[in-house]
Structures are given as structure tokens and as C-alpha cells.
Simulated scan of single mutants.
Amino acid sequence: MRLTRRRPLLVAVLFCALAVLAARPADGDGSHAPGHGSPSVSAEVARLYEEAAKATEQYEAGREEAEKQRDLAQRLEERLDRERQQAAVLREDLGRIASSQYRDGGGLPLTAHMLLADDPEQLMRGQRVVQHVEVTLDQALGRSERAEARLARDEAKAAAAWKKLEQRNEELAALKQDIEGKLESARWKLQGEADASVAAGSCRGAVRLDQPPAQYTTSWVAPVETYELSASYGSGGARWANRHTGQDFAVPIGTPVRAVGSGTVVRVSCGGAFGIEIVVEHPGGYYTQYAHLAAVAVDQGERVSPGQWIGQSGTSGNSTGPHLHFEVRVTPETGSSVDPVAWLAGRGVTL
């Protein structure tokens, strides 16, 4: 199935971790089988999502720290290169001074010359020569010793910085692996409940999503926040009797599914080709369908607002992989669909 890129797909960890479930079986209506589904499993899924959310925060903080540590280590390496060059220059200076002393015969011949001098002025000139040579040599030796000591300290700092960075990267890799494992476990536990509901042909009570407060300035939104578009409306394929009746959004299991606009939930059903599905009636006579879900977060008859989380995506029913099947219809029933991309575009939502 060819994917058509419309909006960048973020790392699955980041937006799945946002779906922190506060599992609460709702009072069902005729379409909900009371007691179906295990509250303990729902609680475990909620706990796993909470842990994944916390681990994601730690991973992001650690990744930023690792970047800072990398910058520090690189700066130390650059300073070390400069200090090595300076130390090499000082060694050359010491070599030239030593060679000059050797050619002049060293300090002892100069002293002998001063003792044999015929006048005080010649003696003073000889003394100044000796003092100048000694001072120059002492200064050069001091600079060289300080540079070597500084170089040794900075080399130790750089080595420690790189070691710390390496250890931090190993910790981050383990943390990321732990995040992915917990999310994968949570997703498939959630999907297992969905499959059980579909097999029974009845939905368990709504599992409420503890969604963060969101302010939408528009009356219409996309059904999922981050996605890639897959099978489009009207496309052909062996999976459909005629043509594809909706727009598919490729998203991982557990992704929050949003009501695209205000309306009333007129159907929550489990079973059949669509698996777990929700149908919402909107003002103006249109209906939207959200299918192949892993969980529902609303009850039949409930009012919903734009952007409200009404369920979680999955791969229930006749589905070849995790995705959301989204339809726009002129009746609640299948067979009355219109192009959902064009319909949303007419309401200011570009996919």
C-alpha cells in the first residue's frame, strides 16, 4: 500500500505517550455489554502509558543533556589542539636557547671572561648577558611547564567528558528500548481487548481518555493530530468489494482519535468488517465514521466537541495493519460516503 505524505509523521513514542488512560468503565446503553473486558487489564494499560510518558520526558531531557555534553567535549578537544600547538612552539624556543648557550660555551666561560676583564664596563656587560640568558631560559621553562600541566589537565577533562557522554548515550539507548517495549506491550494489550470485543460482537464500557485541555480556534480539525495518509477515497484493491469508501490514516495502535467537529455520537459498535467503530452526527446532515479502533472513549448519545478524544486507533475488524479508517457520509449507514478529504478541505482542514 503506497503512502502519500501529507504531514510529517513524528516518532510514535512521542504522541502515543500522550494517551494517558484513566480507565473507567462507563454506564453502557444497548450497544455496550456490561462487564465485558477486564478492568485490571485496562488499569495495566493506563499504568504502562503513564510510565511511557514519564520515560519519554526523561529521554528528551537526557538527549538534550547529551547534546550539551557533546558540545563541551568538542570545545575541550579544540582547546587541546591549540594548547598542543603552543607547547610545540615553546619546545622549539627552548631548543633554540639551548643551542645558543651551547655555541657560546655556556655560563662558565662567560664567568671566566668576566673575571679576566680589563675594565668594569666589560664586566657589567658580561653580567647582563648572563642574567638575560638565565631569565629568558627560566621564563621559557616556566611557560613550557605550565603549558604541559594545563595540557595534561585538559586532556583528562576531555577524556572524562567523552566517557561521560558515552555512558549517557548507553543509558539513553536502554531508556529508549524500555519505552518502546512498554508502549508495544500497552498497545497490544489494548488491541487484545478490542479483538475480544469484536469477537463477542459487543463493546465494553467506554474507557475515558484523560486528555489535556485544548483550545481550538476552528470548528473543524483532522481526526488524528499526526499521521501519514495511506489508502485514499475511491482507490481500488482486493480488500474492498467496490472502491475504498474513506480515507485511511496510518497511525500506531493507541493513537488518540478526535471528533472532527461538534456533534452527537449515534453509534458505537463492535464487530463486522469495521471492527470497533464510532459514528458521529454533525449539524447540516453529515455523519463521520471512525473505524478499526482499539478502544472507545464515548458512549452512544453523548455530545462531542471539535478535537475531543473519542477513541484510540487500532487494527480491529477487516484491517491489514494499525490505522484509522475515516469516512464522511450523508446517512449513518455505509454506502452513502463522500470524499472526506474534499469535505474537510471545504471546512478549512487541509490533510
Results as ranks from 00 to 15, higher is better:
T4K: 03
R187T: 11
L344K: 11
A160H: 12
R2A: 01
V251S: 01
R239E: 08
G106A: 00
A294D: 08
R82F: 02
L151K: 13
S185V: 09
I97V: 15
Q211E: 09
V129F: 03
H132P: 00
I276A: 06
G201K: 10
E228K: 05
G205W: 00
R146E: 10
A294E: 01
G348N: 05
Q247V: 10
H113S: 11
H113N: 09
L137G: 04
R2C: 03
R6H: 07
R70V: 10
T255A: 08
D118A: 12
Q191I: 11
T320L: 12
V257F: 02
W309S: 13
R5L: 00
V130Y: 10
G346N: 13
A117E: 00
R347Y: 01
R347E: 11
R239I: 04
R150C: 09
W162M: 14
S219V: 04
Q69I: 11
L172F: 06
S305F: 14
T288P: 01
L137P: 01
Y290P: 01
R125A: 07
G271T: 07
A88P: 04
T320R: 13
R70W: 04
E77P: 03
E92Y: 06
T331K: 13
L9C: 00
R267T: 12
C270L: 11
V89Q: 10
L3S: 13
G275S: 06
G37R: 09
H282G: 03
